[in-house]
Write a protein that binds this DNA or RNA. Structure first.
Lengths: 209, 209
DNA sequence: ATAAATATGGATTATCCAGTCCAAAACAGT
DNA sequence: ACTGTTTTGGACTGGATAATCCATATTTAT
């Protein structure tokens, strides 16, 4: 009766249908944005009817929230196992290459799957803003965790603040996504990440450069 | 007869009306995005009728292009005279403070006036993407110009690439805008810019740090 | 097997909104 | 003043689309 809940009161079949809807909506939103994604398109892509869509989601807004969560999980999963152990300069460089590779494969399209949604909805949908923030924080937190490990190990100087460095690196990532999307070239992403990684490298105990 | 042209064949009165429409649309788009901005709202805010709007713009798309140009000019103008002479570390730091101050005054709302539009339209409106790219490049070019002057003066080491540094700094700026908008806190913008400025400072001939 | 809950089909509605149309008014040049 | 151009008013249309509704099928539990 309460369709907004995610897991309970759903048979396996129902859960599968729900997932199909979310996945279809996520794909559509990724390449067209929230406002330009019509529920008719989502229904067609997922192969469901109106009543199914509204059985699992109260309205478009609720579906968008589910999409944000879905994309957050997808991002975290796509970057494992690297993202779980960003605790050395080589690991950070490898992670950089992974992200650049993904964007290359996407032809620089779409930008950040949740950042784009955040940008579109931040001023008009407070709840969506909160969900995007939670997703971004999980991502950023993984980076911070790695840097913290580096510092605890003595690879980063004691004065280096893992939280600040992670935030700065993450901002460079997001800006790189945007510029890469608008320019249709991965270079902004590469240059931004490299610059921030160099900055982090300069704070290592035994500077490589 | 050709309403897409900007300046010619318009009486002063006509130009004023056109500007009123663009300004109203720009304000609305800044805080709601393109798709969520209805032309009815624009008409009401500008105090014009349908025939006026369509007299000066072929369609919504054409109006959006004019808004992108308008916002580009506004950004450049708002950052003068600092933006025109970013040729020293103190100047760069002052510029950082100016931008952070602007976002503070805006309560962290809206993000980058053209970057947000780019994010929303990059995949669905190629022409808008091009216009946004042109605007971003003008902005980024001003930064690059300052860094180039620094290098020519010997304040930056010869190996430092002004174009790369400007691109990296600009990406940090855009990412900072986005995170600041989603978090409703200027800290991401501050941290991202400071980190990139520190990185630039580390490439000066006589390192201050 | 039967009843209750869950899942699905698809037509329908009510609203919003981009864009059109037919004028009329204001203005410019002569 | 006269004529053509520019500017303006505002009703109207066609289409898209989020959301509703009622009926039917399928599954689950006892």
């Amino acid at each position: 009766m309460k369709p907004s809940q995610a897991s309970t009161e759903l048979t396996p079949k129902g859960m599968a249908t729900r997932e199909r809807i979310v996945a279809a909506a996520a794909a559509e939103i990724f390449e067209r944005g929230v406002a330009r994604t019509s529920l008719d398109e989502v229904k067609a892509a997922a192969g469901v009817s109106s009543s199914q869509l509204y059985h699992y989601f109260a309205d478009k807004h609720a579906l968008v929230l589910a999409v944000i969560e879905h994309q957050t999980e997808a991002i975290i999963a796509a970057q494992q196992p690297l993202l779980g152990a960003l605790d050395s300069l080589p690991a950070l460089r490898a992670w950089r290459d992974l992200i650049v590779g993904i964007q290359t494969r996407l032809d620089c399209r779409g930008g950040c799957p949740i950042g784009s949604i955040g940008s579109e909805l931040a001023e008009t949908d407070p709840e969506a803003r909160t969900f995007v923030l939670a997703g971004l924080n999980r991502w950023q937190g993984a980076i911070e965790q790695g840097l913290r490990t580096m510092r605890d190990r003595g690879e980063l100087r004691a004065e280096a603040d893992p939280e600040e460095l992670a935030l700065a690196l993450f901002a460079a990532l997001q800006g790189g996504f945007l510029l890469t999307q608008v320019e249709r070239d991965t270079r902004p992403l590469e240059v931004a990440l490299d610059a921030m990684l160099d900055h982090i490298a300069s704070m290592t105990a035994t500077p490589a450069a």
